[in-house]
Design a protein around this nucleic acid. Sequence first.
DNA 1: AGCCTATGCGAAC
DNA 2: TTCGCCTAGGCTG
Length: 286
Amino acid sequence: MPEGHTLRRLADDLAGAFAGRTVHVSSPQGRFAADAAVLDGQTLLGADAAGKHLFVEFAGERFVHVHLGLIGTFLVHTGAAAVPPPVGQVRLRLVAADGDHASYADLRGATQCELVGLLQRDAVLARLGPDPLRPDAAPERAWHRISRSHRPIGDLLMDQEVIAGVGNVYRAEVLFRHRLHPLRPGNTLRRSQFRAVWDDLVALMTEGVRTGRIDTVRPEHTPEAMGRSPRKDDHGGEVYVYRRNGMPCHVCGKNVRTEVLVGRNLFWCPRCQPRFRSRASHGSDA
DNA sequence: AGCCTATGCGAAC
DNA sequence: TTCGCCTAGGCTG
């Protein structure tokens, strides 16, 4: 489930459960065992997210840098009567006693779980573009890259050095909402279009943090409003085009299309997101 | 029970 | 361009 909203939420959950507490750190699977031993019994100071990266901070400017990749999970449990034996390949486990209860968190399947210092953390942050979920984000940095690039906007939106935290679902959905074809070159967007996309990402992803799912359909296109059945999919949210290839567009009825770009699936509506500006648009090109 | 696919991305070929 | 990661939900049987 990892796009930026998942990591932001995870950072908040970890901080809520462990910040300021002495934590038992282990690696039942073994691959993080040496570093876990260094951290075991130390105070966990907090957790923060940037794009799809998570940093769990311990005393002494030590951070566990986590990237979930495609299949990773980091599940936080609070108020457990007992801490159960690890199930599956638990790379990292955090445990804090909580009176007669306990909190614990298990990391599985991550592509990255590494103990780093301040410099290494900052090096990761320096490579990331602005993150729509961070109040200090500088969207003009993203516009600078996009406005001078021939690369498709669909590619640019997924490039974490351009914008951090956007994944395949938010990419597909925000392009649909702004009627932009994913293969349109970045340097053909107008500044106002980029700004609208950015502002929409801020709103959509903020809502994603709140709900824990990705919902992008406007009120008039919800299942209730349209009398259609709700989506049954593992990401759980209501969307316009993501993984809806071959199905009718909620807005115009034309079948949603898919194509692979840089190893990832694009999804778009060929009518709502025309590749070329329509002659009938009278120059509004909205 | 087994198969497929996936919200990501770096390394290997 | 393909593989690894080795999770997890949905679908097939």
